[in-house]
Simulated scan of single mutants.
Amino acid sequence: MRKIKLSPLFITLLLAAVLVLGGCVPKGEQDKAANSFMVTDMLGRQVTLKKPVERVVAIGPGALRLYCYINGIDKVVGVEQLEKNNPTGRPYLLAYPSLTSLPVIGPGGPNNAPDPEKIVAVKPDVIFTTYNADKASVDALQGKTGIPVVALSYGKVSAFDPAVYSSLKLIGEIMGQEKKAQELIGYMEKCKEDLNNRTKDIPDNKKPTVYVGALGARGAHGIESTQGKYSLLEAIHAKNVVDETGKTGSIMIDKEKLIQWNPDIIFIDLAGYSIVQDDYQKNPAFYKALSAVRKGELYSQLPYNFYTTNIDTALADAYYLGKVIYPRQFEDVDPEKKADEIYQHLLGKPLYAQMAKDFGGFKKLTLP
């Protein structure tokens, strides 16, 4: 077979033709590809967004809070009505009060569905949501609005949940704040490691028994509201008497069970303190039967469960719990200063004084 020899000139022309033909993709399609990017949200959905993301809404329990941790209020164009209601107990609204002057994009609240029409009216480039636990409902919202919807998650525990870290990374990726997200996650992990290192080697027989009551769970409750495997006590390896039940998360106990446990130290979440005070007036004998009450080992805890977890306040509480339970291991910690350090890192402002003004701060409690 005779070989065909191609001249250098022919090869050059052929390559040029290939390049020209390859460039025949419509310019609009080229621009579209260059100005879009894809992320995978917390439900495993692949979401395509356009660059740059300039207008944002965050809907559902805690979504706006997570966004504020990463990007402040920059680019937020609307908020739920619930966010405009009493900001007490939500440090992100204390740090950024101007959020409450933005247009309303829906009622908000865990039992209220998003309002597609009001969301569309403020023309966001992306909707961050914590409302939906299934892909179908998130896809439905995206279909109704025609706007990319990115699902976030808080996971299952009050602090140090990997789902929160992943959500912060996702917001950082979308908003071009990857470095900020990594710094924030690094700070949280540093706190976790510090709490662990201070307490991990304390023998069980040197630990007092502890109970945390009046914990918020879809509203305020009395002393019988508590948690098994309570993440803040877990972080400091404390002996939570509730763990005897084998349950995890929010539970309501029989008050007589608390007398049986008779913990050395009791913490009361300040969101439910008034309920506890009222209950004391009705049944003082119950409280006087608790040695922690009689011996003055009753302490406060700042409430952090407002429209799900205020991670900043939960971290501050963990340090205060550690200071009370293990004074020697936390002798160098000033809980109020530590709280302000945490608020500063997460929200850019020291907010402990305002939280203490609203709820009473870290202190011993007395009944009545």
Rank of each mutant, 00 (worst) to 15 (best):
S158I: 09
V76N: 03
V324H: 00
A217L: 13
D125C: 13
G44M: 07
S36I: 07
P124H: 00
N305C: 10
D74E: 11
P97G: 04
S36G: 09
R294A: 10
A133R: 15
G361Y: 06
Y96K: 02
L14R: 02
A217E: 15
A17W: 12
L102E: 03
Q301Y: 06
L168Y: 08
L94V: 12
G186E: 00
Q142K: 14
F267W: 11
P162V: 02
I70Q: 11
Y92I: 12
G348Q: 04
K179C: 06
G44V: 01
K3Y: 15
A217H: 15
K200Q: 10
I202N: 01
I325N: 08
T309F: 13
M42T: 07
L195G: 01
D278G: 15
D41G: 04
G296R: 06
L195T: 08
K357D: 15
K200Y: 07
A16R: 00
L367S: 09
L195P: 05
C68W: 05
K257I: 11
S250E: 14
S250D: 15
A16S: 10
S225N: 13
R45P: 09
V122A: 05
F286H: 11
D278P: 09
Y273I: 06
S167H: 06
K247V: 04
F128E: 02
A16P: 01
D254A: 13
S167D: 11
L6P: 03
G216N: 14
S291Y: 10
L258W: 06
A16I: 10
I59T: 12
I105L: 05
K239G: 03
V324W: 08
G249A: 05
A314H: 02
S101T: 15
V57Q: 04
